[in-house]
């Protein structure tokens, strides 16, 4: 059953959110570069607002194999879970890139857990912190935890916090040492959080563009 969220973000709001996330992951890329020693490019080309079931479907469409996710909780004016999700096979690539590419496969498998946790931590923090900053709000963001599974279970995690019904679903592209790794970021939140986010985005848009949004942009 596909159900659209009652409160939606309009085009400009989504655009603003995308821009914020891109700034966030770009900063994270600069941060990662320090560790990796080679050029790191991160980009989020699209942001969608979907329901939990839609999110599971979207994941299932492109990924038939097992997934690994870095999970962090954010609390504040917006509350929810943020996950950086990779197909399990890609995570090894990521770890290899991040550890310099000289390690034997066995070592990489060993170190995957930690390396992935920290890398995911940097990226998610990049996203979330930037959003928080630009929206002039403070969040409390937890330490990372690694999850493995098929996909659906990521969206069925037990509370706290409340597993929201809304998912901000982002595609993220990683490029390190000429290796392109694709993954996803999913931010789960409940409706009140989404509404709060909308308000914050509006404020942000007005601040930066000088536009009063009600006048110029109509919701979808």
């Amino acid at each position: 059953m596909i159900s659209l969220p009652a409160t939606v973000l309009d085009e400009l709001e989504l655009d603003a959110l995308t821009e914020l996330v891109n700034i966030g992951v770009s900063r994270a890329a600069a941060s990662l570069r320090e560790m990796v020693g080679r050029q790191v490019l991160l980009s989020v080309p699209t942001v969608k607002l979907v329901s939990r079931s839609q999110a599971v479907e979207l994941l299932g469409q492109s990924e038939t194999n097992r997934l690994v996710a870095v999970h962090q909780v954010f609390e504040g004016d917006i509350t929810g879970r943020a996950m950086l999700i990779f197909p399990e096979v890609n995570s090894l690539e990521l770890v290899r890139a991040v550890t310099g590419g000289e390690l034997p496969l066995e070592d990489i498998i060993e170190l995957e857990q930690e390396a992935l946790a920290e890398t995911g931590n940097i990226i998610l923090n990049g996203c979330l912190a930037t959003i928080a900053n630009m929206l002039k709000r403070s969040l409390k963001i937890s330490l990372p935890e690694i999850l493995r599974g098929e996909g659906p279970e990521f969206f069925e995690l037990a509370p706290p916090p409340e597993a929201g019904d809304v998912v901000l679903f982002l595609y993220i592209n990683f490029s390190v040492s000429e290796r392109d790794i694709r993954g996803y970021i999913a931010m789960l939140m409940d409706m009140p959080s989404l509404e709060a986010l909308k308000v914050l985005l509006r404020e942000f848009i007005e601040r930066t563009t000088g536009h009063s949004t009600t006048a110029t942009d109509a919701p979808l």
């Binding site: 700034i23 890329a29 630009m134």
Partner: peptide
């Protein structure tokens, strides 16, 4: 770009472009 890293800075310089950090 918000991605202020060495490689991008030098590549910008190569094409004669300046660099402005985002935002």
């Amino acid at each position: 770009s918000a991605n202020v890293q060495h490689e991008i800075l030098s590549r910008a310089a190569e094409v004669g472009a300046q660099f402005l950090p985002k935002p």
